[in-house]
Design a binder for these strands. Structure first.
Lengths: 187, 187
DNA sequence: TGTAATATCCTAGGAGTCCTAGGTTTTGGG
DNA sequence: CCCAAAACCTAGGACTCCTAGGATATTACA
């Protein structure tokens, strides 16, 4: 009998794919084991419990998103940087819905510190360099930015914008324009 | 042996309370039955399955929120109406986290049509009366509004704003100001 | 008031999930 | 080649969702 060759990395990767397919909260140890052709109990040599699997997916997603955002923003500033940042988020959320919702999982401090959260936060602050904001307006603006992008992406995914004829794409562009003018003329 | 007196209304109410306590996706038939001092199987005379319980909670939440928003907005216009609308949402999400997340549940068309979704939508449009917007900017603005409010509330609940010293309350006020100026000078 | 119909609740049980305990097999280093 | 660690297994307990079919309480109506 040949071994399945499960290890932490492959397990996390498979968990992320599974989450994208069936939804983050349908992410189950049994399904994961099935995917490896292995019994449930076998996975507990590699992972403490389901919670750890979820945490791993969240950390992976955070790192992946930070990478994509960094790549998208490279060499851009002002409105371009803003759009790159926002589009990267929306794109990631669409391609990887399970991973995206995973990122909402609250992480314990040390896990969060070891994650790409800081890197992601730095990237967000980089957007503001193109605008003229000082603290505490910076923090307020970042929170607003995150809220709008996250809210839009979430509601769009939940089908909240499907009732009206107006294409979501158009509203997205408008939202980016709005955010840009907002950051330009912060009250 | 005295009957527990379960019926659709009491069941929905109890489910909503339970969801607020343990989280919407921890809402379970067994826990619900326990709360009524009844066996799991007994609940299936009143409800088809867990999905229906969840749907009921979502519909209830939609109606409750619409009520609160309507009450908060009564007699207000412009920035006041906007703030009332947003605060009502944030307040409801804080008081009833389970119910709030329930509202993200996609409803089938006939359930949605019978729900308070339309009423809620009308209330949202009412905000824009204080500003000078025509279609399709109206739809775009509404989507932005919803996104920002929902995003803020969600991220706040997930503890996303706890890492910085800046009190969330201050950023919330700033966000409302920002939305107001944005609606006033829509690009 | 007595009885029939209905609504409510029950027991029993299958299937799926999470997880533990403890045993067996595979693999790689000495 | 042997043996220790790693990978995997079986067995099983606790919990969940749900179905089938039976018992009991409540209501309706004759």
């Amino acid at each position: 009998m040949v071994r399945a060759g499960v290890n932490a990395e492959r397990l996390t990767q498979a968990a992320a794919e599974l989450a994208d397919e069936v939804g983050f909260d349908q992410l189950t140890v049994s399904a994961l084991a099935r995917r490896f052709g292995v019994k449930d109990a076998s996975l507990y040599s590699h992972v403490r419990n389901v919670r750890e699997v979820r945490t791993r997916v969240a950390v992976l997603a955070l790192a992946e998103l930070a990478d994509r955002v960094a790549a998208a923003m490279a060499g851009r500033a002002g409105r371009d940087a803003l759009a790159a940042f926002a589009d990267a988020h929306r794109d990631y959320a669409r391609r990887h819905p399970g991973r995206y919702t995973a990122m909402l999982l609250p992480l314990d401090p040390e896990t969060a510190a070891a994650s790409a959260a800081q890197r992601h936060s730095d990237l967000t602050r980089a957007i503001l360099r193109g605008y003229d904001l000082t603290e505490p307006a910076q923090t307020d603006a970042i929170r607003l930015l995150h809220s709008t992008i996250h809210g839009y992406v979430t509601l769009e995914a939940a089908g909240g914008f499907g009732h009206t004829a107006r294409p979501s794409e158009a509203s997205w562009i408008a939202a980016l324009d709005a955010l840009h003018t907002l950051l330009t003329n912060w009250p």
